[in-house]
């Protein structure tokens, strides 16, 4: 209920951010009901109908295998949601746990945060590339790699925010009333961090899309047969002049979705507790 009020206040009077939020809802719906709305099988190859221009029945045209671009784009929404939600969960779970525990148990925390610092010495995409080298190309591995990369920044952020909260009187009060460590961490500190976490999640969601697209482009992301917007761009890039629609549609989908996520994150950030505002670096 509180979250609903928080969302309503965050979007009040922000038309662009509201439009972004609605767009993201549309993506999620498309991802769920993809088999119902996609007119064709996204993997079905048609040697005769290669590189058809957009029109009827191929709304977005066909690619160089004769696959329907519109259907592939709808299935691509699935990958967008899976990559986004997956990496957000991995990043928030690993990073959040490390950050909170480090702030709470200072001695262990000192060691853990030094480890996080070391990992942060690797620029994001480079770290993803190193991890990818050790793993097979698969959806799960892509999610894991991107999630782990952003777990480091999340750990840093949560560390800072938990430290701030730890000094508050209501935590002292909880300690005095005999609350145990896990109760303090999860019942007193965590609820106060939920809305900042939501902001961080929306930025990670946006970054993850760009990273995943970059990995796809480099041929190191999702397996090539998976219909993702990044793979569509990567596979069809040599047709940029002959069949421009093959790059415009998936590209625009990525841009609009990432832009929407950034707008949403920005709107949410403006309405969270001002103490935490500067902790979260978004766009």
């Amino acid at each position: 209920m509180n979250t609903l009020i928080f969302l309503r206040d965050a979007f009040a009077g922000r038309k662009l951010a509201t439009a972004g939020f609605l767009w993201l809802c549309l993506i999620v719906v498309a991802a769920i009901i993809a088999p119902l709305v996609a007119p064709f099988d996204p993997l079905e190859i048609d040697p005769v109908g290669r590189l058809t221009e957009p029109g009827w029945p191929n709304l977005f045209g066909t690619d160089h295998f004769g696959r329907d671009t519109f259907s592939r784009a709808i299935y691509g929404a699935r990958m967008t949601v899976i990559i986004g939600v997956g990496s957000v969960l991995v990043a928030l779970f690993c990073g959040g746990l490390i950050g909170m525990i480090s702030a709470y148990f200072t001695r262990l925390g000192h060691f853990l945060m030094r480890a996080v610092d070391v990992l942060m010495a690797f620029p994001a995409l480079l770290m993803a590339l190193v991890l990818i080298t050790l793993l097979e190309r698969s959806v799960v591995n892509t999610v894991l790699v991107i999630g782990i990369v952003y777990a480091t920044t999340t750990a840093r952020i949560l560390f800072g925010m938990t430290l701030k909260l730890k000094g508050e009187t209501f935590i002292d009060a909880a300690v005095c009333s005999g609350a145990g460590n896990s109760s303090i961490l999860f019942r007193h500190i965590l609820p106060n961090l939920l809305s900042p976490l939501l902001v961080q999640a929306s930025f990670i969601f946006a970054f993850a899309q760009l990273q995943a697209a970059a990995l796809d482009f480099l041929g190191l992301g999702l397996p090539p047969e998976v219909p993702s917007w990044g793979n569509m761009l990567s596979e069809e890039r040599i047709y940029i002049t002959r069949a421009p629609w093959l790059l415009i549609y998936p590209g625009m989908l990525i841009v609009v979705s990432v832009f929407s996520m950034n707008l949403v994150g920005d709107a949410l950030r403006d309405s969270i507790d001002p103490r935490f505002k500067d902790d979260i670096a978004g766009v």
Partner: peptide, 19 residues
């Protein structure tokens, strides 16, 4: 506009600049 520019995949922008 700045937020839009930061939301673009770099390779996609690069491909269009080339074109």
């Amino acid at each position: 506009g700045a937020m839009l520019a930061a939301s673009m995949p770099t390779f996609w922008l690069g491909l269009y600049l080339i074109m």
